[in-house]
Amino acid sequence: MLEIKDLHVQVNGVPILNGLHLTVNPGEVHAIMGPNGSGKSTLAKVIAGHPEYEVTKGTIEYEVNFKKINLLEMEPDERAKEGVFLAFQYPVEIPGVNTAVFLRAAFNELCRHQGAEEMDPIEFDEFLRSKLTLLNMEEKVINRPVNVDFSGGEKKRNEILQMAVLNPRLAVLDETDSGLDIDALRIVAEGVNKLKRKDNAVILITHYQRILNYIVPDFVHILSNGRIVRSSGKELALEVEERGYDWL
C-alpha cells in the first residue's frame, strides 16, 4: 500500500532523513521508534505533505485501487482524501472554528471525493456521537473550537476521534501516546484497535514501548540519523525499552 524508497528530506536546508526505505502492506501495523531528533516526526509530516519539508531524493508510492500513485506530487488535502491520515504530535488549536463544523466539512469533502452523498448537520451529529462513545469522549468537546483549551489528553483523543470519523486507509500516528496517562492511553489504543481492518494500515511513531502493549505491531523499526537501522518483530521494542538506543 505504501512504498518509500531512498527518501531524503531536508528542512530549511538541514538534512533530516537520509535514505529511508519502508514498505507497508494492508492490514499491517508498523511501529517506528527512535531517539529524539532521529527523524520520526519528519517522516510523518512528509507522508502527510507538510510544505516545509523538502524531499531532495527518493519516492513515496501509494496504492489506490491497485494503481500506484506518486504521493509527493499531491497536495495534503488530496492525500487525505485518498485515505492518508496524520494524527498530529502537537494538534493545532484553531480558535473560532467549531469542532463539529470542522469535522463535518472534512467528512463531506471526503464524501464528495468518493461520489457519496454529503451528510446534513443532523445526520452528521448522530454519526459523530457514535464515534464519541467509541472514544469515551464528552459531547461538549465537539461544540468547542478545535483543540482550544483542550488538555493534552483531550487533544490526542480528538485526533483519534477524527481518525474514527474519516476512516483512513493509512493512519500515521505521530507520538499519539506521548503525555497520556495510562487510562487515556488505553482508551486511545482501544480506539485505534477498533478501527483496525484487513484493508487498512497503521504507522505508529512512538518514543516509548508502552503503547505497544495495547496496539501490537507486526513490525518494529528503529530510526536513527534519518535511516531505518534495524527492523524486526514486536520483541525489538522490548529490547529497546530495556537497553535504550545506544547499542544500535
Binding site: 505533505g49 497536495e75 495534503p76 488535502d77 496524520l86 470542522f102 472534512a106
Partner: peptide, 11 residues
C-alpha cells in the same frame, strides 16, 4: 492551521 485543515481533506 492551514496545514492541519488540509490534512483533514479540506482544500
Amino acid at each position: 492551521e492551514i496545514f492541519y485543515l488540509k490534512s483533514r481533506n479540506i482544500p
